[in-house]
Design a protein around this nucleic acid. Structure first.
Lengths: 165, 165
DNA sequence: ATTTTACGTCAGCCATGTTGACTTATTTCT
DNA sequence: AGAAATAAGTCAACATGGCTGACGTAAAAT
């Protein structure tokens, strides 16, 4: 590969490159959350509710311990928002069949609708960015993002390969 | 192109691809902020203080209105954390010379040290991810992240080109 | 039978966002 | 010169969403 001057050389990382990376994350996250936050405010819910609804939608039948592991918050913090969501019938709970201590969480119809409404803005944003960037850029994006994420959670993003789960 | 099952095709965006994008942002931001948050807690400060210190370090002499524009929070929210930082001498204020109503903000020595300590963990995380991913992936990462960010703020990331600022 | 686990709950605290109203100093506009 | 707009600060009150600590109950595992 020739010495292309516009091409970045991340193996020769400058302070400025790293600052830019930090800022990309700050601005992207800020804008990424702004739309659903505004919708949530109208129905008296917050970002924490969105996260719960999102992950319950993603992993139907997830139990409380698993959800806590994803969100990395305390049981008490989760209890508050989960309580709201169950009371307002966005989320249904049922006892585990194998382990009856567990509360398996699923979205109700109403919850699915909420999840879709909230995340649609985010999906649209991602879709637009992906389309504008092209397939190769998307692959690079994924690779870098995975590198930023703690190793323990990278497995979640592996395609269903040799692993049994 | 053949029907390669592992190859992504972002022009043919599947629900799953978009979900993955949402999750990459969630996990990356979660892990990206965890280390500085833990350091901040030890000295009685929070993430909001970090953001202020970061951007004052990035734009020395920035005024309050500009900082509010970046953070997208209210003046009152900023006042609290900025007040702490000035009181504890992480940040110095001086009146603008051209417009004496402005308070221009700069980091003190102590503030610079704090900024460096806090952001070093983040810089290291970015650097490691960039190095592991390679130059092409980094370029793709930048492109996609810019696509996610609201158009108004994309200009901040343009290299000092034709524009006068 | 004991211990551990999964979950829930009460009580209180802190950080960080919000709105609304108002003041002061300075600059800009007419 | 006088009026209006702007930059910044401030007071008060409130909501959200984290946190710790302590304790309870049911079910599973040892």
């Amino acid at each position: 590969m020739a010495d292309v001057k516009s091409g970045p050389n991340p193996l020769f990382l400058r302070e400025e490159d790293l600052r830019q990376g930090i800022e990309l994350l700050f601005y992207a996250y800020r804008d990424f959350t702004a739309e659903p936050d505004a919708m949530l405010a109208k129905i008296g819910l917050g970002r924490a509710h969105h996260r719960v609804v999102y992950f319950v939608g993603r992993y139907p039948g997830i139990n409380v311990t698993e959800l806590l592991g994803i969100l990395q918050i305390t049981k008490q913090s989760l209890a508050r928002v989960l309580g709201d969501l169950v009371a307002q019938e966005y989320i249904a709970q049922r006892a585990g069949t194998k382990d009856r201590r567990q509360r398996l969480l699923t979205l109700t119809e109403k919850g699915q609708e909420l999840e879709r409404t909230l995340s649609d803005a985010q999906r649209a944003r991602i879709a637009q960015a992906y389309r504008a960037a092209g397939a190769a850029a998307v692959e690079g994006f994924r690779t870098v993002m995975l590198g930023i994420i703690d190793a323990e959670d990278r497995a979640k993003f592996q395609p269903p390969g040799p692993g049994k789960r």
